[in-house]
Every structure is written in C-alpha cells, then in structure tokens.
Amino acid sequence: MTVNTLRICLVEDDELMGEALSERFEMEGLACDWHPRGKDALLALQRRRLCCQATRC
C-alpha cells in the first residue's frame, strides 16, 4: 500500500467545510479528493479504487 494508492474521497457540498477538511487531510498526510457533489464522487470512485471514503452532508 503506498501513499499514492491510498486516497480519501471527500463529498462535501459546503465550500468552506470542504476546503478546511481537505487542508486538514493534507496536513495529516492523507491524500484527498474532494467532490462537492455526490454524483462526481461516484464517477471518480468508479475510475479509481479508493481505500475509504468520507462524506458529510
């Protein structure tokens, strides 16, 4: 498992929260993909295998 292969998929519609969380994940050394909309997140997940996903609604 490499860092490159371990990514977090963040689905957050609130811009401020999404940005703040993305920054935090990065600070913690976690790769993160932030999607404001769930549909985009699903598409991205189909393209890449992710180890976990985080959503906040």
């Binding site: 401020l16 940005e19 600070m27």
Partner: peptide, 17 residues
C-alpha cells in the same frame, strides 16, 4: 451551521499548523 463547522475546522487547522 455549515459554514460554522468549516470555520471551526479551519481554525483548528490553523492552530495545528
């Protein structure tokens, strides 16, 4: 509530940095 959560996370990030 939503922006408030963001602001609080951002402030926490800021302190942690």
């Amino acid at each position: 509530n939503n922006p408030l959560g963001g602001m609080l996370v951002a402030l926490d990030n800021f302190k942690r940095r």
